[in-house]
Design a protein around this nucleic acid. Structure first.
Lengths: 234, 234
DNA sequence: ATAACGCCAATAGTCGATTATTTACTTGAT
DNA sequence: ATCAAGTAAATAATCGACTATTGGCGTTAT
């Protein structure tokens, strides 16, 4: 009998439901829910309820919550549990400024170092972004999740030429914070020509014009920040 | 019966053992232990043992470990537990490069924006750094913890003028990673005039010479990276 | 009406057991 | 003897119930 199946024998031909750790799944679920805007800012994230909803124990939920807090996607109030963070306009501007400060520099590095594979990926990412509809009728006033992901991937790919995982991780964190904040202060600006900006970004990058690329990105980020800023003060 | 002790009555004459959350203490302890180099890179961080050592339950230890992993101070291998990360030379260089990329830009911003209070804090931080001995006979070949902290605070204070918490948080993360990596690849370079570099940094900052400050910082970081890089390749 | 008292709900932390993997180790066939 | 299937011990992950604290809130005397 040659039943050689020292490892994954799994009668699982279908979507292996239990592959990774449970906490991982719960974490991912929670993360998505928050990013998707399922909760209102300030909402309490009760371990009890979440555990029941997901059919897992408290320990698992707590682990997921702790990770989420570490990522800045939730606040933790000592002895008062977890909650969805309430982003202020000020907070949003800080994040936007941080992006304006860091991303152009990384983009410059990326344009100078990126290889042919990188160029190809940039083209691919831009193509996908350009072909993805930004809004879906069913998804309310927000951007479609498909477009959001394509958008993120385009921006990330642009920077990936830098080849430095630490910088990319920094980008990831800022992007996440940025998207979360955007969710709650989104005043859509119709005058915005996002597609055009992205196209110019791709062009400058592929033309290996680091200065132009950085310049365009800075403007892009500035416009984004301005568009989302509350019309005026008090 | 007037047992009024709505709040901290504490018969605690001694070091109030329980003030904040337990997990917080355990987290801090673990963090320090790793940063201090109590464990060798690659060492397993067994929840069981840690729980026993600290006299707390598994749940608390796990929470602390998860947070530590989130900060990059430990690795998590699925089903194989937690472990102290083993930094490679490559990893170290990536961190160093990220710092060279981000910090000078932030410093420039800081120098342009910092107010008088910031100037005062920079002076104070530099003074403390300059007066703190870098090495303590008892603390082996490593820098004294007092100096390390003064060093961190000096660099951080320099950047605090930017007034952007997001950027400062980025600095914090990179600094932490940097220090951890340094711990394991530290070849002390005797030729290094760290004190002088710090002095020039302070001077440029207080002179409000953003270009010079950024320049000096870049050189400072480059030298640090070079000093810690393994002498040569294979 | 104000302030202290005390109840209530929810979170933080503790225990001990159960399941699932990993890793180490033993044993059997070639 | 060598390699590998097979078994056993070890550890991680998860669970569910229980205890201890904490902050909020309503109630009651002054």
């Amino acid at each position: 009998m040659l039943r050689r199946m020292t490892q994954t024998a799994h009668t699982s031909p279908s979507p292996s439901p239990g592959k990774q750790m449970l906490s991982e799944q719960v974490y991912a679920h929670l993360r998505n829910a928050i990013m998707r805007g399922d909760y209102a800012p300030g909402d309490a994230l009760k371990p009890q309820d979440l555990a029941k909803e997901q059919g897992v124990s408290l320990a698992v939920v707590r682990e997921a919550l702790v990770r989420v807090v570490g990522e800045g996607l939730a606040d933790r109030l000592p002895n008062r549990g977890f909650a969805v963070p309430a982003f202020s306009d000020r907070r949003w501007q800080e994040i936007a400024e941080a992006r304006r400060t860091v991303e152009p520099v990384v983009l410059r590095m990326s344009v100078e170092r990126g290889d042919v594979d990188w160029e190809a990926r940039v083209r691919a990412a831009h193509h996908r972004l350009a072909r993805t509809p930004a809004h879906m009728p069913e998804e309310g006033e927000h951007y479609s999740s498909a477009w959001s992901e394509a958008h993120r991937l385009f921006h990330r790919t642009l920077l990936e030429g830098c080849g430095n995982p630490v910088l990319l991780e920094t980008f990831d964190r800022m992007w996440t914070a940025s998207e979360l904040a955007r969710r709650w202060s989104a005043h859509r600006n119709p005058d915005r020509d996002a597609a055009g900006e992205h196209r110019r970004l791709e062009e400058a990058a592929l033309a290996r014009d680091a200065d132009a690329a950085a310049e365009v990105l800075t403007r892009h980020l500035t416009l984004t920040a301005a568009a989302l800023q509350r019309p005026e003060g008090a």
